[in-house]
Nucleic acid binder design. Structure first.
Lengths: 257, 257
DNA sequence: CGGAATGTTGATATGCCTCAACTAAAGTGG
DNA sequence: CCACTTTAGTTGAGGCATATCAACATTCCG
């Protein structure tokens, strides 16, 4: 990922691959974490877990003792409806905490699964709670992270309830593209997104056939494409306009208290 | 509200009308707050604000220095779409914090308005931040409050995207009724809910005419009624069944760490 | 008491879902 | 490695739920 060749940079680059530093980089995009607090965070013990495509990380009603940070791939939160149909609630990319809430809410009200092969780091709740006592700014930063999550949920309500199908799908792709780009995960206009059309339907409240036709329509605009599990946004501002997308709710530019 | 006649209880009953104690009662439904921390919370300075029906408390892009606790009436969060149509995101009853998030996210990504005449208490952010440092459990309790908010948003995604109109509306009424009942705000089967059918449509992503017909259908079941701004749920379990409502996401029974 | 806001019902239009058939790609076993 | 199966994607046809349009009733409020 990095093209540094200087020897002195290598240790830092290695560091960037640890769960702590993936997490820290994310938190520091919106919060001011001192180097002293960062060191405390780096002391957190963790273990990693590999997930196969579709594998559940946590299920509704579980009472986990740890929270996960995404390291690789994508995980999704979802509800299960009585018919067996799923409602996907959110997608999470490396650096995200798909279940930070389980720190304070014992029982899961939804499930979390992998989209494509993924990897997460698991952090014990008791270790996190202890960290918050020693380094309150880290606690506030993670609180802030959960609040941004909530803003994304609010936008999903509006998206699925208030926008016509084309704008709705454009908004979905727009959001994940902007988030991925801000996290440095895009390769130019492309972002690997291992989700099926059926799952997009279960995210946006659309039937599979409508998903297929709406993708076809979006493709025809030349603004974006989604095929072979790769999202390509060749005209981000055009897509934003089509989607009525305003990135404010992502709070990417939140100053740091 | 209380039927106590004993003289010694009177001071406590009076206390229950202060913003602090409305808030404290809410937090203590899910979090363990020591009496010492409660006293610190009671020292928070505040001012109250009366809101007319429909009046905005905060608007999108504002950067408030206060957070509000609802004391009386109902306030709603909403997005404004380019067409001018609103998307209501959540309703908040006395004890709720409709904008706790503004503590950590400077810019509002949505607006908050009153449904019917309402009253809120405004708490300065700097005073709250100082309180969290002196009484971390209060901070965690309010964090937990924002996480329950997020769970309610998730359920709204599922409700508006995955349920047919009758179940969707039943779920909406069911949730607000259970929340109001848990807060001791219902009068038997009745709960005053000053929302118009048009606004219900802007909450559930339905057209006004469909709202009207769906209410008519629900009324015909004998399970519930909504008229003259009063919600009546004569058969809560019947309504839950119709709505596919599982109160778990409200985390009303969350134990206290 | 009059005007505006809200609620109610019927008729019509349409966007999306369902059903169905087929293609393409990916994964599996002989 | 190819035959086979499974999964995912694509397109057409038709029906239905819900949006839209229109008219009127009722309630609220100054």
């Amino acid at each position: 990922m990095h093209r540094h060749s200087g020897g002195t940079v290598a240790p830092l680059a290695n560091r960037m691959n640890t769960p702590h530093d993936i997490l820290l980089a994310k938190l520091r995009r919106h919060s001011d974490i001192s180097e002293a607090d960062a060191e405390l965070l780096r002391d957190l013990p963790f273990r990693t877990r590999q997930l196969d495509d579709g594998e559940d990380l946590i299920r509704q009603n579980d009472t986990p003792q740890f929270s996960a940070v995404v390291l690789r791939g994508i995980v999704a939160r979802y509800h299960t409806l009585p018919t067996g149909r799923r409602q996907y609630l959110s997608l999470h990319i490396p650096g995200d905490w798909p279940d930070a809430q389980s720190l304070l809410l014992p029982a899961m009200d939804h499930s979390v699964c992998a989209l494509g092969p993924s990897e997460v780091a698991l952090l014990r709740h008791d270790a996190l709670t202890a960290l918050f006592e020693r380094a309150p700014p880290v606690g506030f930063a993670i609180w802030r992270e959960t609040l941004i999550d909530a803003a994304i949920f609010r936008e999903a309500i509006t998206n699925n309830s208030g926008r016509a199908t084309e704008a709705r799908m454009a908004h979905f792709f727009c959001e994940i593209f902007f988030r991925a780009r801000a996290a440095g995960l895009t390769d130019g206009a492309a972002f690997p997104l291992p989700i099926t059309q059926d799952q997009i339907g279960e995210t946006l409240g659309m039937a599979l056939v409508s998903v297929n036709r709406t993708i076809r329509d979006l493709r025809a605009t030349g603004i974006m494409d989604f095929r072979n599990r790769v999202l390509t946004v060749s005209d981000p501002s055009g897509l934003s306009a089509l989607a009525d997308f305003d990135p404010g709710y992502l709070h990417l530019d939140t100053p740091a208290p």
